[in-house]
Design a protein around this nucleic acid. Sequence first.
RNA 1: GCCGGGGUAGCUCAGCCGGUAGAGCGCCGGGCUGUUAACCCGGUGGUCGGGGGUUCGAGUCCCCUCCCCGGCGCCA
Length: 430
Amino acid sequence: MVEVREIFSKYGPDSQVVVRGWVHRVFKVGGKIFAWVRDPTGVVQVVFEKSSIPEDVWPKVKKLTRESSLEVEGVVREDPRAPGGREVLAKNVKIYCISPPFPIRGKEDIEFLLNVRHLWLRSRRMTAIMKIKHTVLEALREWLLKEGWWEVTPPILTCSAVEGGATLFEVKYFDKKAYLSQSAQLYLEVLIYSLGKVWSLTPSFRAEKSRTRRHLSEYWHLEIEGAWYDMEDTMKVAEELVAHAVRRVLEERREELQLLGRDVSKLEPALETPYPRITYDEAIERLKRKGFNIEWGDDLGADEERALTQDFSKPFFVTHFPKKIKAFYMKLDPNRPDVVLGYDLLAPEGYGEIIGGSQREDDYGKLLARIREEGMDPKDYEWYLDLRKYGSVPHSGFGLGVERLVMWVAGLDHIRDATPFPRWRGRIYP
RNA sequence: GCCGGGGUAGCUCAGCCGGUAGAGCGCCGGGCUGUUAACCCGGUGGUCGGGGGUUCGAGUCCCCUCCCCGGCGCCA
C-alpha cells in the first residue's frame, strides 16, 4: 500500500503500486475511464482501460461514481496529460462502495454546504485547513512544554460564571443546574499555587447568538496562568507562542497554505518578536486621527479594531484598557486606577483579537470590592476569593482562541471553517 | 436583540402588470479509447418554506409565522 503523495516522489515510472482511497472525480470516455483517486495525502489520476483489467471487473468500474471507495493495483507511468504529470494504469481494482450521486459538485451555496458539512469536510480546502489546525495545535503544545508549563485539565461542567451570566449554557447536573465552561481561567488560578506555570486546552462555550464571522458558540480555548508573572511577562509568552505557531505552519504546511491561496509574505513579519505595543489611550488617539467618532472609555468595536490593524504588519498589543469595559478580576494599574493591567493581542489584516490577557487582582479586599462593584454575589466566588487569603501572589495569564489564530494564519474569511463542526448562532447539525 | 438580503426540481437559479411551472447542471438510457467543470442524442424531474386572506384565478398582492445568510453589539 502506498500513499498517493509517494507516487509523485518515491515511486517512479513502471513501479507497481497499490493505492486506496476515494474517487474525487470520474470521467468516462468510451473504452477508458479516468478516476481521480484521493487519499489523505493527495490526488492521483487512475486510468482504467478495458484491456488493462480483468474482463469481469470492467462492468463494475463503469459504475464508479464520485466518492466511491476503492483499492487499485496498477503501474505508475508518466503522461503530460495527467494532472501532476503522473498517473496509475489500473491492473486490478477492489471496489468497496459505489456511492449514490454525491450532493456536492462545487456550485452549492453556504447553507447547503453547512447542512452537508459531514460530506463537505472531504474537500481539499477543508482538509488543508484541518491539517493547518493540527500543526497550530502541535506547535502551541510544543512551545509550552519546552518552556516548562504544566498541562492541566480544568472542568467543563462548572458552577459559576466568569464573563457574565447571560452567555452561559445551562445544563442539568443531577438535581442541580450547572453551566458549560466559558473559561478555565479561575481554575487555572487555583492550580498555580501548586504548579506555578500552568496551561490548558479546552472547549469553551458562549451562548451569545453572535452573528459575526469571528464568533463560535463552542471554540477551543488555550489558556495559561503563571504565578509571579506580571502583565508584561505573559505578553512575552503570548508573542513567542504565536510566533512559534506561525513558524511551524510556514515550515510544515506550505502546500496547504498555497492551496488556500494564502499570501505567506503577510505571515512572515509575525516570526519576529517582540510585537508592537500600544496603550488604549494611544489607540483612541490613532482612531480619532483616522476620523472615528470615539471617546476615551468606549470599547473598541469591530470597525475600530479593523482600522487599527491596518497600522501594523504583524500582531500587536493594545494595553491598559479602562476598567469599566474589562472583567472584574483584572488588576488595576497602581499608577492609574481607572485602567487595568490587561491587554489584547490583535492579528493584522483586519483579523483582530486572538488573545486577551491580564494581570489578576491579587489583593483580597480589592477583589471583593470589584465583585461588589459589578453587582455580583461574593458568595459565588468564595473559593476564588480564598486564593487571595492563602498565600496570594502576583499572577497573570491569558486566553487564546485557537480558531481565531487558525483563521488568521490560514487566511480564512469566516471562523466557522477553522473548525470541522462549527457551533454558532444556534447551529447544531451535523 | 437590532438592521439588511433570501427560501421555486437533487443542486444553482429565472419567473415582467396576478392567467395555471422554466433553464442549466445532476440523474437514467444510448454513443464516444485521453478526460481535466468532458462532449453529443434521447428521457426523467415540483407540497413554489408553512398558515391565513384578497381574487373568477396567487410562486407573484396583503397579514402572520418558521428557517437560512450577511452586518452590528458581545468576546477568544
